[in-house]
């Protein structure tokens, strides 16, 4: 554990709390892509199956439970409790175009060919692109509420901080995991355009609005 990893995890946790709090307080999930949230639940479910096979630390186990529980809670809020506010007309990204290639790639490029390892690899690949339905939705409507922007910024920062953590770990332990690193870089790059808009607009008090 190092400062980059810890702040990365905290950014991830803050993102989830911002999202749940926004939906709960406004009693609405307008502007939120249910499809991205379904992909995140699939990511955590396939990655954290190792909860039953390998123990790392209390911290790891606790965070895995939190990520799993909150991802399913988010899906419940979007598809059940506040279903009437779900903007499904704008949430039209075809998620099979992300799931199937991630699965195919996980079967082809992995560290070790067994059930848990392929699912772990699938979760890494899928996570790198899981935000696309949400970014697609923002681009379709041409705008995002400030709170949704804060959510996206925290969520994007998490993997960027993990990249610093991987550099640090390589320097101090000689540890590296190419699959996680390449996917993490792809994931962070997908947020770059958003980061630019966030810094130049949202932080200056303006609404995130895309040029027409």
């Amino acid at each position: 554990m190092n400062i980059f990893r810890l702040t990365g995890d905290l950014a991830h946790l803050i993102a989830i709390i911002i999202l749940l709090h926004k939906i709960w307080k406004s009693r609405s999930c307008a502007g939120i892509s249910g499809k991205s949230q379904v992909l995140f639940a699939l990511v955590y479910t396939t990655r954290y199956l190792d909860l039953v096979t390998s123990y790392v630390s209390i911290y790891n186990t606790f965070m895995k439970f939190v990520f799993l529980a909150t991802s399913y809670a988010t899906i419940y809020l979007i598809y059940v409790k506040f279903k009437a506010t779900y903007d499904h007309n704008h949430d039209t990204f075809r998620i099979e175009f992300l799931i199937l290639p991630s699965l195919a790639l996980a079967l082809l490029i992995n560290h070790y060919f067994n059930f848990l390892e392929v699912l772990w690899t699938f979760s890494i690949y899928l996570e790198s692109v899981a935000i696309l339905p949400q970014l697609f939705m923002v681009s379709k409507t041409g705008e995002a509420e400030s709170i949704t922007s804060h959510y996206l910024f925290a969520l994007g920062s998490y993997r960027a901080l993990y990249i610093l953590n991987w550099i640090y770990r390589y320097a101090t332990e000689g540890h590296y995991d190419l699959i996680a690193i390449v996917a993490g870089v792809v994931q962070t790059v997908l947020y770059c355009d958003f980061f630019y808009l966030y810094i130049t607009k949202v932080l200056k008090g303006k609404k995130l609005q895309l040029p027409a």
Partner: peptide, 10 residues
């Protein structure tokens, strides 16, 4: 090098 015995990150 990645360990195959389990992943220690989230």
């Amino acid at each position: 090098v990645a360990t195959h015995q389990g992943h220690d990150e989230l």
